[in-house]
Amino acid sequence: MESHFLLSQTDGRPMYLQIIEQIKNKIAVGDWQQGFKLPSIREFAVTLKVSVITVKRAYQELENQGVIVTQQGKGSFVSSGENMSLKIREQEIDVHLVEALKKANALGISVDELLDRLGSLASKHLQNVDRSE
């Protein structure tokens, strides 16, 4: 199997989280559509040069999140849920937004203030994008 994945050695996160993120990314960008058959756990582990248990862990987590379904003896497939790609993109951005909320809370910044900050950052960011075009 040709590898579509590259795990980072310097990324501080556990390897199974990197695998989850990269699988979700393949689905989010539409490379792996609903019903797509994922590589077997063993095959994937060999390709990535990581242990079988690490890939198993990633698949279990993806199954819990409803991203993939595993059929005994047949393998794992991308879930046929509606708009899986959109759902994953939303989940992905939510992770960062929740982090921002936690950080704001720790710094004593209210949700309204945070929304204002986001608004003003968005307009600044858009200006930058305009200029660079």
Binding site: R42, E43, A45, V46, K49, V50, V52
Partner: peptide
Amino acid sequence: TLRELMDVMMDE
């Protein structure tokens, strides 16, 4: 070396 070791694991 690591690659060869993992290749062995293809066999269950």
